[in-house]
Amino acid sequence: MELLVASAVGILTAAGIYLILRRRSFPVILGLSLITYAVNVFLFATGRLATGAPPILNKYEEVAYTDPLPQALVLTAIVISFGMTAVVVMIALGAYLSSRDDSTAMPVEADGAEEDA
C-alpha cells in the first residue's frame, strides 16, 4: 500500500512539473492541478496510512483511529486550492482574451507596444 501511495505521489509530481514547464497557460494550470493532488496526498500521508480507522469517535467500544490532524489540514487545503485554481484560470483567461495569446512568457516587444496596438 505504502509503495502505491508513494509512487502515485511521485508520478503526479513528475507529471505536474513537466506540464508546468510547458509554454502555454492551459497545460500549466493542468500541471498545477496535478501538483495539488500530489501535495494533498503527501500531506495526508504524513499521518501514515490506515484502513477502516476513520477518526470518528466510537462511543461504545475501543477502536483504533487514524491521525485526524493531517486530514483537517488537507481538507482546508483542498478548498483553498480550488480558490487558487480559479484565480489562476481567471488570470490565464483574462490574459488570453486581452492579448489573443496564451503563452506564459512575456512578449518580447519593448514596453508600450501594447498601448499602440
Binding site: 501511495v5 511521485g10 508520478i11 513537466y18 514547464l21 503527501f42
Partner: peptide, 22 residues
C-alpha cells in the same frame, strides 16, 4: 530536459513520502 527535471523531482517527492510512511 524538462522530462529529466520532472522525473528527478517526482522521484524525490515519492522517495520522501515513502521513507516517511515506512
Amino acid at each position: 530536459r524538462d522530462g529529466a527535471i520532472s522525473v528527478v523531482a517526482g522521484l524525490g517527492a515519492g522517495g520522501l513520502i515513502y521513507a516517511l510512511l515506512m
